[in-house]
Write a protein that binds this DNA or RNA. Sequence first.
DNA 1: ACAATAGTGTCTCTTAGACACTATGCG
DNA 2: CGCATAGTGTCTAAGAGACACTATTGT
Lengths: 244, 244
Amino acid sequence: MATRSSVKTFPLPFTTVDVVIFTVLDDVLRVLLVQRPNAEGEPFPGAWALPGGYVDTAVDATLEDCARRKLLEKTGVGSPYLEQLGSWGGAARDPRGWSATHVYFALIPAQGVVLAKGANAADVAWYAVADVLRAPELAFDHAAILRTAVERLRSKVEYTSLPAFLLAEPFSLPQLQRMYEIVLGRPVDKSGFRTRMLSANFLEEAGVAEGDSYRPAKGYRLIDRSAPVVFPRTFSPRAGDSNT
Amino acid sequence: MATRSSVKTFPLPFTTVDVVIFTVLDDVLRVLLVQRPNAEGEPFPGAWALPGGYVDTAVDATLEDCARRKLLEKTGVGSPYLEQLGSWGGAARDPRGWSATHVYFALIPAQGVVLAKGANAADVAWYAVADVLRAPELAFDHAAILRTAVERLRSKVEYTSLPAFLLAEPFSLPQLQRMYEIVLGRPVDKSGFRTRMLSANFLEEAGVAEGDSYRPAKGYRLIDRSAPVVFPRTFSPRAGDSNT
DNA sequence: ACAATAGTGTCTCTTAGACACTATGCG
DNA sequence: CGCATAGTGTCTAAGAGACACTATTGT
């Protein structure tokens, strides 16, 4: 900042914002992808990519506002769980020049989502995360970004209430447990799960949860939707490797 | 990215990188600050700020390279612990216009640091973190950034080997324990501490540690300096509040 | 030999994990 | 009335915290 402060004659990097939007649909963890336009001069024509784009300095007051806007445009969801994931920047990631992207990651319930088709972003779809990770044909460095996002999600799910943001309220404890199991990819003990959730004091009762179950379950709602709860310990440290 | 891809006639935000560099000096956690120039047109003239500045697209291949460069220029340290903290961007944070900064945070041992004085960044100094947080007169939104960095540091120290990066090798377990206590601001039990460190298997013996102690202590070195170790549990969960 | 620090042993109490059990509503 | 799911109780064992102890070296 010192060296060349007032005189700005050097080339500026492009600034973009991308959003990794997760949901659980049909018992599978999914991520929202958009197909890149086929127009001339466009990088990665026809390839799938994370939703995002240039910051509009005239519209977006902050980076987070920009992320919210993009999420709303693509999904119609206005109150997601949203946190910053990190940023990726360099000379090589976009053929158009030096660029830096600020990446956010969001969790939303599948229901109530209205995907924005047509317009300019040709197509939008929910992809199973496992499939995308297996054959990562994404544009730019989005495969790496997605990988990081999934890692972050999995690791935080071990000790936070994050999966609650994947469900529409009111939800039942069995449903919530299901979310944990889907994201973690392994079963979770029912009894321990319930004690843990209820003693963390972040849920309040709210009627009865939807579901085609034999016995209806109590409904719950988040007391505070603004942030997840951090549990004092991780799930199943019994299996603790000493690495990472 | 879709809407206005090829035609870039709209204003680009400024892209900067800032680095929060921590060390422990004289038994106190400190952060490196630089004084902003007094020249005309400079924002926050004379104020203290985090070291950082514009990305130089001709020199820096990636954001992290840029952070490494700035750290090397200011401290002479070439192999710090470096991780990304997050990014802050918006219309209001810099009077010169819409700007986004990518912030990294670094840990370095105090010894061997050669502060770069003079030149253009008028002055450089280690400030006690506690003092700066008490009277946050920093330029831009750097006070908020520092606060976030300290939070992140403190929280990660609870369950990782991060403080090892604050020491020159070889170091002793008592010295390492001291680092934990200084960062956490509370005493840590010796016995538990040792079991924990040694069973995590990230240290290897390396001679004898420096120190004016009565009884010399065994020296240790990190087996892998590239990343910290994550412990399965936090320190003293006994005191666990249910919040945050 | 003594002081000061390095390093070890032991006890207790919490709590997670495992799993068996009871309760309840639907077909 | 039985069955599938919701929800509870109990046992065990691992580990953390606390603290008392022993070991080693410099002065």
